[in-house]
Amino acid sequence: MPSTVTRLPEHQLDALARAYGEAVSQKRRQLLIGLALFVAATIVAGIVAEVRPATFVANIWRFTDYIGRIFTLDNGPNTGRPVFTDIAEWMWGLDKWLKLMWETLLIAYVGTLLGGIGAFAFCFLSARNLAPTRWAGIAAKRYLEFCRTVPEIVFALIFVVAFGLGPVPGVLAIAIHTFGALGKQFAEVAENIDMKPVDGLTATGATWVETMRFAVVPQVLSNFVSYALLRFEINVRGAAVMGFVGAGGIGQDLVEAIRKFYYADVSAILVLIILTVMAIDLGTERLRHRFLSMSTRS
């Protein structure tokens, strides 16, 4: 289909062009001001954080050197060769490390489950559409916020003093953080449900607990499981460093290896952690997709 574009008369075109130019230059000005502010903030931050590019450049070889050294055997007959040439020597502590890794996974599991159960019970209180009273909702929300804003390592530090060294403070720290994080996500899911079944059950005279059980839970369960699995994956990473403050798991051995310069051990433990995290990552992703497709089908 042939078409012609009619050109506007000059005086109209002029005004439009001027308006366009003004809009563009205003946008540019905004961008420049934003950029200037950003650069200023970066410089201030750089000064406060004692960024020393010269030190960095002068020491960057140490980093590559470090990476090289942790992948070099420092014990046994093959000392000085890359770790992959003598896997048995590299993974000399495999039994001990696997045991610690299993402990790490259990810390993450128990922490996620305990925190998840708490969040499950709590989210119905804090969801805006379900809260029995407005005050209960607000109080529950603030409490959840506190639990997830304080980093879990800080909880772990305090709990280590209270409960003593070992995995117990690690589990509790992860459980509290999980409680805060999942409580918020669960409440958001619960706020987006279809309210008709709730109204229906309320109309039959069901109690609050019965309403939650039969009208809300069936709608939200698959999403809850999906979020809990995602949180479990995050918690495995978290549990791996709990040992840094003496709260159990593989972190204890890792921090010791780094501090005492057992180079090959550092890489061995790091590889174990990364492989475990990846495996958990893949496993939970599969499970999550199954649960989410279940929820879209029904």
Partner: peptide
């Protein structure tokens, strides 16, 4: 996969 605390130590 490497936590920021581990990076910090390194």
């Amino acid at each position: 996969g490497v936590d920021e605390l581990i990076w910090a130590l390194i």
